[in-house]
C-alpha cells in the first residue's frame, strides 16, 4: 500500500513537472488560435496559409497546431493557457484583435513563452509578446484605383464587417484610391456589423448593385456572399486578406494577400536567438508582407494593364510619392501625386 502511494506521488510530481519543461529538440513548434475557419478565404486562412508555407520550407524542423473557429474569446483563452502551460510550444499566436486582453493577462504568467497577436501594434510593454498588423490601406488604395478605373457607372459597392482594424484600414484605403483615380466616383460603403453573416452581406452587395454599383469589394470571411453577387451579375470583384481567385473565378480582378510568413520567419529567428518579443510588425508593400495578386481569369491585355498599374502604384506608395491616407480622408490626384 505504501509503495503504491509513493509511486502515485512520484507519478503526480512527474506529471506536474513535465508540462513545464519545453520540448528539448530542434523542432520549432507553433500553436495558433483564430476566430474563423482555415478555409475562410480571408483573415484566418491568411495565417494558416503562412504557417503551412513555413512548414513546407522548414520540413521536420517545424510543427504547428491551428485551432480555428474560435470566435468565442473565452474558448480561445482556455486553448492559449493550455498551450502556454504545456511548455511544448516555442511560439503561441492569438490571431485576432479580440484576443488582446487575454494575452495581456496571460503573457506575464509565462515569461519563458513567446506570444504573438494581431492585428495590432501593442506589445503591452511585455518582452515576450510580439504584435503584428497589416497596412491594409496600401492594397486597398491599389484596389480602389483599379476599381475606379474600370467602373463604367462610376459607382462602387463596398461591404465591410465592423468598422475596426485592418478591415477599416482596407476600406479607407480603397475609398482613397478610388477618389485618387476618379474624384467623381461614388463609393457606397456598408458595414454590416458582423464578420460571418453571409446572408446579410449578400443582400448588402445586392443593395449596392441596385444602387448602380458595377464593381464590388469587401473584407472578412462573409465576403463569399458578395462574391456570389458579383459572379451572378458579372461584375468586377476586388478582394483582400487572402486570394479569392477560385471563388471569384470569373469576376476577380486583384486580391491583396497577407503574407504573414514574412514576419513569422523573423519571429522564428528572433526566438531562436532568445528574443521572445517586444517588437511590433507591420505587413507592407515595401517589406513584401502585402502582395497584390492579379486574377488569372483576366485576358492577357487586361492582366498586363492591371499588373503595370499595380507595379507603378506600389512604387509610388513605397517611395512615399503617393500618400495613401492623407489627412484629408479622401485623397485627390493633386494631393496624392
Amino acid at each position: 500500500m505504501k509503495i503504491r502511494t509513493v509511486l502515485l506521488v512520484v507519478c503526480a510530481l512527474l506529471l506536474s513537472v513535465i508540462p513545464a519543461v519545453r520540448a528539448q529538440d530542434d523542432v520549432f513548434r507553433v500553436a495558433a488560435v483564430a476566430p474563423s475557419a482555415t478555409n475562410d478565404l480571408a483573415f484566418s486562412q491568411s495565417m494558416f496559409d503562412a504557417l503551412t508555407l513555413i512548414d513546407e520550407e522548414m520540413g521536420d524542423a517545424f510543427e504547428f497546431v491551428f485551432q480555428d473557429g474560435t470566435f468565442v474569446v473565452d474558448d480561445a483563452a482556455v486553448a492559449l493557457r493550455d498551450w502556454a502551460a504545456s511548455g511544448e510550444y516555442d511560439l503561441i499566436i492569438a490571431h485576432g484583435s479580440q484576443y488582446g486582453a487575454i494575452l495581456e493577462e496571460l503573457a506575464p504568467e509565462f515569461p519563458e513563452v513567446s506570444f504573438a497577436w494581431g492585428t495590432d501594434v501593442n506589445t503591452f510593454g511585455l518582452e515576450n509578446v510580439y504584435a503584428y498588423t497589416a497596412a491594409a490601406e496600401e492594397g486597398g488604395f491599389i484596389n480602389g484605383v483599379l476599381a475606379a478605373s474600370i467602373s463604367q457607372s462610376g459607382v462602387i459597392g463596398v461591404v465591410g464587417p465592423i468598422e475596426v482594424g485592418d478591415a477599416k484600414a482596407y476600406i479607407d484605403g480603397f475609398q482613397s484610391g478610388a477618389t485618387y483615380a476618379n474624384p467623381d466616383v461614388e463609393v457606397l460603403v456598408t458595414y454590416i456589423q458582423s464578420f460571418s453573416d453571409v446572408p446579410l452581406a449578400t443582400e448588402a452587395a445586392a443593395a449596392h448593385v441596385a444602387n448602380g454599383a458595377d464593381v464590388l469589394t469587401g473584407s472578412a470571411q462573409m465576403v463569399v456572399g458578395p462574391i456570389a453577387v458579383a459572379q451572378e451579375n458579372e461584375l468586377a470583384w476586388f478582394g483582400t486578406q487572402s486570394s479569392q481567385a477560385d471563388l471569384a473565378a470569373e469576376s476577380g480582378v486583384s486580391f491583396q494577400v497577407y503574407r504573414w510568413d514574412v514576419i513569422l520567419r523573423d519571429m522564428i529567428e528572433n526566438i531562436g536567438g532568445g528574443v521572445l518579443g517586444g517588437e511590433a510588425y507591420v505587413l507592407t508593400l515595401e517589406n513584401g508582407g502585402l502582395e497584390i495578386q492579379v486574377s488569372e481569369s483576366l485576358d492577357e491585355e487586361s492582366a498586363s494593364i492591371v499588373t503595370e498599374t499595380i507595379a507603378a502604384l506600389t512604387e509610388g506608395i513605397v517611395s512615399g510619392e503617393i500618400v495613401v491616407l492623407p489627412e484629408d480622408p479622401m485623397a485627390t490626384p493633386e494631393a496624392g501625386s
Partner: peptide, 18 residues
Amino acid sequence: SLSIALLNVFQQNLTSGL
C-alpha cells in the same frame, strides 16, 4: 433556400443565428 437558391455558396456557420 440559402445555400442553393439565395446565396449559392456554403461556408461554415452559414446561417449565422438565423
